[in-house]
Nucleic acid binder design. Structure first.
Length: 791
DNA sequence: CTATGTCCG
């Protein structure tokens, strides 16, 4: 009943909104008229002034000034342009790269120093050539040359290219390693890999004895793994004088990198890109969606040739922007054809592939993207970039143990990366929908590195298993906030991975074996004792991939209804299990996925993860048993690893966090959402602040389970005799053991102070992070009006 | 009572 009412009212509202919006738009266009200048608010740029300085539009609302010429650091991996490739041999192509001119100098400086920072601009050829130069210079005679990449695709494609250049089969002299795929052999001399792989390797072999040289490519992106490797490799090099470390960096932070590694030399390799004109908005834009739509259309109607790339923070904005461009273009007479293509990572791959297809002759492409187009995928033929100036960032707040996924202004580094996307195949233009003063004064030079804004439980576990005694003294380039480290250690203590002295327990050592977040590893370990490991294995696998359910625009109701068929009323975890079992019963069919609004790609990955985890379990002699249909056992097992993330029912549909007392909400996608069934206690997998504090993926639990499984948090005041009595009392008398919590924290704090006294080196620096929700700390917090756009 | 940026093991 409740469901029907909810769906019904929603339908009506949506429909009404749509009608209203249409009406309002018509009004808008009648008022605005159809004169080009009026609609765009900008004069047509027949002859865009490329020399800089001159205003492009004089009388419009959106107004730009050419400010500077700009060539960016962009990744130009391996692909040479096709006609060039036809004419030249591989060797000639290699010699044409800018890095070739400085080859000997580079090798000399590497010979003379253990660590070198290389500033390699886009198109310099560093990624493909550095490894080969080291190989040619004899470094592979006593070990491998390793090269890390932040992304898998990069590791694979570069390895392929280099193996062709050397003239061997991929996987022999030149190979790569990524999760699920080790394409190397005993013959391998040059090994490309993701930075996560090298990190895992250092667990087995802390001095990296197999390597004679390690190149950390794209280090300026500062991925979590890169930052941990920084600290580790710095020490490895001091122990092993025969190991060479080469770290690539962007110009802006090369000095910082050099200082971190001990004032090591910086070597600069020029790049080869086309100039990009940067045009800033003269006035701040109130609504970046509106501004982007106008700018996109203005470029399109200017008659200049070339595809357009628009950067937006998220899926919703992308959809609104795309729709608006299409709609407004339809209202114009004789407008040239334009294909508008959205792209973001959650988009199914067949739709993603569209952006790489060539548009029909005379049709311009306009790609509307998240920052996926900033580094992860490169589209050729982009001449115009429109940059809204925002991105979404996940920031972890250790105090309340919650992530916040919110829109933040981008950094200058992001902005430069984005504009560089217009200069890949020819000179281009970048329209920034923010003022030059905002760029200079309000934007950070670089994005806050991931290590300072993420949950560190995994990093802490890893470093502990590497024998790092005091994590607060570990040499990070940018140390994470102390709160964050302490919180992670505390969390690991709760999970039984660390003992009271902060050392790794046997459970902790077992947890390290799994490429999972600690709580998930714990769940897997506990499940073996509770005889439901086969089922938990599936749930864990489902939880370690991104979104399973697909909710396409325009078919929201339909997909929601299909999803409800899978829903297990008391648990999202069990709902996931249910989905997997049904998929399995349908022979892992991709058609079945499509019919049920489920991401095929995600499910395939679940299967891969499951198989990898299963191998580890077998190797660790953990038994695989299913509990059949006794799903209470499964819920109890989940509770055993997540009791620290519990919420108590407060009112109808209202929950409060048991530990912090903070109100939390069920996410609308939860099986428990909007149902008549409202359990007294639930545990949640994740707490994320978006528009509200949402618990994502929840399972109902018995109050007494919490007391039984999380005795350091909860206790039942008086134990009754019967089960029902127990349960009743548990519901009434659950106490949050705040004192014990703070005791553990004090213990950690005391330890830290003790260490501080021993070494007053001041290596620990706490960096304040912009607290989510504090508007005064985010000067460029955008006015988000896209939902009401056009009204 | 309503929605999630990008990666990695």
């Amino acid at each position: 009943m409740a469901i029907i009412a909810r769906k019904g009212s929603q339908l009506v509202r949506k429909h009404r909104e749509q009608k209203e919006r249409k009406k309002a738009q018509h009004k808008h266009w009648e008022l605005a008229g159809t004169k080009l200048g009026d609609i765009m608010g900008v004069k047509k740029t027949e002859d865009a002034d490329r020399s800089g300085g001159k205003a492009v539009g004089e009388d419009g609302k959106v107004d730009y000034r050419a400010e500077q010429k700009f060539a960016d650091h962009m990744r130009d991996k391996s692909e040479a342009s096709s006609d060039f490739a036809k004419k030249k041999t591989l060797l000639q192509q290699r010699q044409y790269l800018p890095i070739f001119a400085v080859r000997q100098q580079l090798l000399n400086i590497i010979r003379d120093n253990s660590i070198v920072i290389v500033v390699g601009e886009t198109g310099s050829g560093k990624t493909t050539q550095l490894t080969q130069y080291l190989h040619e210079d004899g470094y592979t005679s006593y070990g491998m040359v390793g090269c890390t990449q932040p992304r898998r695709v990069a590791a694979m494609s570069v390895a392929k290219r280099v193996s062709e250049e050397i003239g061997t089969n991929l996987g022999e002299e030149v190979g790569y390693a990524i999760r699920f795929e080790d394409c190397t052999s005993e013959k391998t001399l040059i090994k490309y890999m993701t930075d996560g792989i090298l990190l895992r390797e250092s667990l087995r072999e802390s001095d990296l004895d197999h390597y004679s040289a390690v190149i950390m490519d794209e280090a300026h992106e500062r991925s979590l793994n890169t930052d941990v490797l920084f600290g580790l490799l710095r020490d490895v090099v001091s122990r092993r004088t025969d190991l060479k470390l080469i770290v690539t960096s962007a110009t802006m932070d090369s000095d910082k990198f050099a200082a971190f590694f001990g004032n090591v030399p910086i070597f600069h390799i020029p790049g080869r890109t086309f100039p990009v004109d940067i045009l800033f908005s003269k006035t701040p834009q109130e609504d970046y969606v509106e501004a982007a739509v106008k700018q996109g259309l203005q470029i399109h109607l200017s008659g200049l040739i070339g595809d357009i790339l628009i950067f937006m923070p998220g899926q919703e904005d992308i959809e609104v922007t795309s729709d608006q461009i299409v709609e407004r273009l339809e209202d114009l007479e004789n407008a040239p054809a334009l294909t508008v293509l959205p792209i973001y990572s959650q988009l199914p791959s067949d739709l993603q592939a569209k952006i790489f297809q060539k548009a029909p002759d005379g049709v311009r492409k306009c790609i509307v993207a998240t920052n996926i187009a900033e580094t992860s995928l490169t589209v050729d033929g982009i001449m115009f970039v429109v940059d809204a100036g925002y991105c979404k960032l996940k920031v972890f707040n250790p105090r309340i143990g919650m992530d916040a996924l919110q829109v933040y202004p981008i950094s200058q580094a992001n902005a430069n990366q984005r504009s560089g996307r217009a200069g890949r195949t020819g000179p281009g233009q970048c329209y920034r929908l923010y003022t030059q003063s905002a760029y200079k004064n309000e934007m950070l030079t670089t994005t806050i590195p991931e290590i300072q804004r993420t949950n560190l439980a995994n990093v802490v576990l890893l470093l502990k298993s590497l024998g790092v005694q005091d994590l607060l003294l570990f040499h990070f380039m940018d140390p994470p906030p102390e709160d964050n480290m302490l919180n992670s250690m505390y969390q690991l203590w709760i999970l039984g991975a660390l003992d009271n002295t902060g050392s790794l327990t046997p459970t902790g050592r077992l947890m390290v074996e799994f490429p999972l977040d600690p709580a998930l590893s714990k769940m897997l370990i506990v499940s073996c004792d509770m005889a439901c490991s086969a089922d938990i294995l599936i749930i864990v696998s489902m939880l370690s991939v991104p979104a399973i359910f697909y909710r396409p625009k325009g078919r929201e109701e339909e997909s929601d209804q299909v999803r409800e068929k899978f829903s297990v009323p008391e648990s999202d975890h069990l709902t996931y299990l249910n989905v997997y079992m049904q998929w399995k019963n349908n022979n892992y069919s991709s058609n079945w996925c499509n019919d049920h609004f489920i991401h095929t790609k995600a499910m395939r990955k679940v299967r891969e993860v499951r198989s990898q985890l299963k191998d580890i379990m077998v190797q660790q002699r953990m038994n695989l048993i299913s509990c059949g249909s006794d799903w209470d056992i499964i819920r109890k097992c989940i509770c055993a690893a997540y009791f620290h993330q519990a919420a108590k029912l407060k009112g109808i549909g209202e929950y409060v966090n048991v530990r912090t007392g903070m109100p939390c909400h069920l996410h609308p996608t939860s099986s428990l959402f909007g149902m008549g069934y409202t359990p007294d206690y639930i545990i949640y997998h994740e707490l994320v602040m978006t528009t509200k504090e949402y618990m994502q993926c929840v399972t109902s639990v018995d109050g007494e389970w919490l007391a039984e499984l999380g005795p350091m948090f909860y206790s039942v005041k008086q134990a009754g005799k019967s089960r029902t009595e127990n349960r009743r009392r548990a519901k009434e008398d659950i106490i949050n053991m705040e004192e014990e919590m703070s005791m553990a924290e004090e213990q950690l704090q005391a330890r830290r102070e003790e260490q501080d006294k021993k070494t007053n080196t001041g290596t620990v620096k706490v960096v304040k992070i912009c607290t989510p929700g504090r508007k005064d700390e985010a000067p460029m917090t955008p006015r988000r009006t896209p939902a009401r756009f056009g009204l």
